[in-house]
């Protein structure tokens, strides 16, 4: 590893720590709000889930290239009996995977919200107990005197 590669790797490590800390802080401050990134990822997944077995093939200019394209089209048609069932199966799987991911995502969101509610309740209890302890300590000091 040369000096530059070494320097880049070291800097990347420091950056990773800063970025992770910032993301963690953001999560803490957002407290289980619906995640825009999650919604976007699901939207993208849904958009990409459908695989097209017969995408359009252009007819490029030139006899040679037209012949190559014709060959591609013929091969595709000849293999359709083999390819199409696989693509159908892939699409069924993609749809099932998308639905499963969406369900998990909804459950994750619900869990996250419950976690933050629970955390807020626990924090409130801890604050109340700390206040009680302070009061008791204060009382003890007063009694000692």
């Amino acid at each position: 590893m040369d000096q530059l590669t070494d320097n880049i790797a070291n800097a990347a490590q420091t950056l990773q720590e800063i970025i992770q800390t910032a993301r963690h802080r953001h999560d803490e401050s957002c407290q289980g709000m619906a995640s825009a990134a999650q919604v976007e990822a699901l939207r993208l997944m849904q958009h990409k889930a459908w695989v097209e077995a017969q995408g359009y093939i252009t007819w490029p200019p030139g006899v040679g290239r037209k012949l190559v394209t014709l060959w591609h089209k013929l091969i595709r048609r000849a293999l359709a009996w083999y390819i199409n069932p696989i693509v159908r199966q892939q699409n069924e799987f993609n749809l099932a995977a998308f639905q499963a991911t969406q369900t998990l995502s909804d459950e994750l969101l619900e869990l996250r919200q419950r976690y933050w509610q629970e955390r807020a309740a626990q924090m409130a209890r801890i604050d109340a107990l700390a206040a009680q302890l302070d009061a008791l300590q204060h009382q003890l000091e007063k009694d000692d005197r």
Binding site: I8, A11, A12, Q16, I18, I19, A22, R25, H26, A37
Partner: peptide, 22 residues
């Protein structure tokens, strides 16, 4: 471009906070 030769941040909901921290 490798991370470390520049700083690359994901274009997601963490972007503004990450940028501020950086």
């Amino acid at each position: 471009l490798p991370q470390g030769a520049c700083i690359k941040i994901a274009p997601d909901r963490y972007q503004a906070d990450t940028l501020a921290a950086l």
